[in-house]
Design a protein around this nucleic acid. Structure first.
Lengths: 182, 182
DNA sequence: AGTACTTATTCAACGGATTGCGCAGCAATA
DNA sequence: TATTGCTGCGCAATCCGTTGAATAAGTACT
């Protein structure tokens, strides 16, 4: 429901092409909302039809032409309206956790293997978020306070996950010992 | 993609009706995967067509009749096959976080108000998860190890969120002071 | 020279998910 | 007595999202 609003948030302070937005969805906002380029182009089309954004055509040579979108008055109004009404709690859909819940069917070693893969991913994210956050520190984080707070959310989330992974490791190792000693 | 697998996990150790499953999706597994009753009934129909589950008709008096589903051999095979292949990382779609990212458009007070609403929800969840976890403690948590680990994930997640909320509060209060002193 | 990646947009098909509705009867509360 | 809530199942329309592909020209690497 609010891919549109995520796009409007991004267009708030910059004019951008669909391609630009897709890149940002892979990085900054991606922390909080995922979208593929197909979705973004589609949504930009709809937003344009509804006069929430407008674009100008930029011919380029060497590269394909692009459309630079900017938010309109109506778009900003819509965004503000949306910001005012309470957000629905996020739906949780974590396939890996479904596996954990059904873990009794697997053997510990294969769970641990996948746990490590997921942990690698989390560690990677953690260090990129930390790098971005410390870059903000240097320049004073008051200007980009909300970017900073978003990053903090990501950081705390990864840390909590990694801490949980520790618990899983020790619990499964203990279980392994019990089953082999019998 | 894996609502079906979440259902199969639940049917592993109990026979259940669509209604029973819906309740569990609102509680235990809901921690990890959300689904509405419409989705569940639809998926049960498909699973039945594919012989992953079968059901028996239970007439009841006072209450409407129900269908009690149980997992079949084929269902268990499918589940095990799915458990073996790596899970895709969960897509993140958190509308409230989009609001935070676009927070510069709102005033601090309305952000703080919604933050408190969300915090209430998290605190509520935290205490129900903790209650469930301590119930497992008493009976020894080794038998239901994976339920316990799933609960721990939920607990750590809520705690991390609440910790983040603290950071947001102090950051926004500081910001408030700065803007009023100018 | 061939392969692969980046910039840039778009379409089509399919499947998953949400929203809204409908039926039906019992129990409990206001 | 009216309303709300619980148990229990289901359909239909629509929307959202994913997957896969196509086009097109430049750059960079092997």
């Amino acid at each position: 429901m609010s891919l549109r609003h995520a796009i409007l948030v991004l267009l708030q302070d910059q004019e951008a092409s669909g391609y630009d937005l897709a890149r940002e969805f892979a990085n900054s906002i991606g922390l909080v909302w995922n979208a593929t380029h197909q979705q973004i182009y589609l949504e930009l089309g709809k937003l344009n039809d509804q006069n929430m954004v407008k674009f100008r055509h930029i011919p380029q040579d060497g590269k394909p032409d692009k459309k630079l979108y900017r938010i309109t008055e109506e778009g900003r109004d819509e965004l503000i309206r949306w910001l005012r009404k309470p957000a629905a709690p996020p739906r949780i859909r974590d396939a890996f956790m479904v596996k954990i819940a059904g873990g009794a069917l697997s053997d510990s070693s294969s769970i641990l293997r996948e746990l490590e893969d997921q942990a690698d991913l989390r560690r990677e994210r953690l260090s990129t978020f930390e790098a971005l956050a410390s870059k903000l520190d240097e320049q004073g984080r008051d200007k980009d306070l909300f970017t900073y707070l978003t990053l903090r959310r990501g950081i705390l989330d990864q840390q909590a996950w990694l801490h949980w992974a520790e618990e899983v490791r020790s619990a499964l190792n203990k279980r392994e010992l019990l089953s082999t000693s019998v």
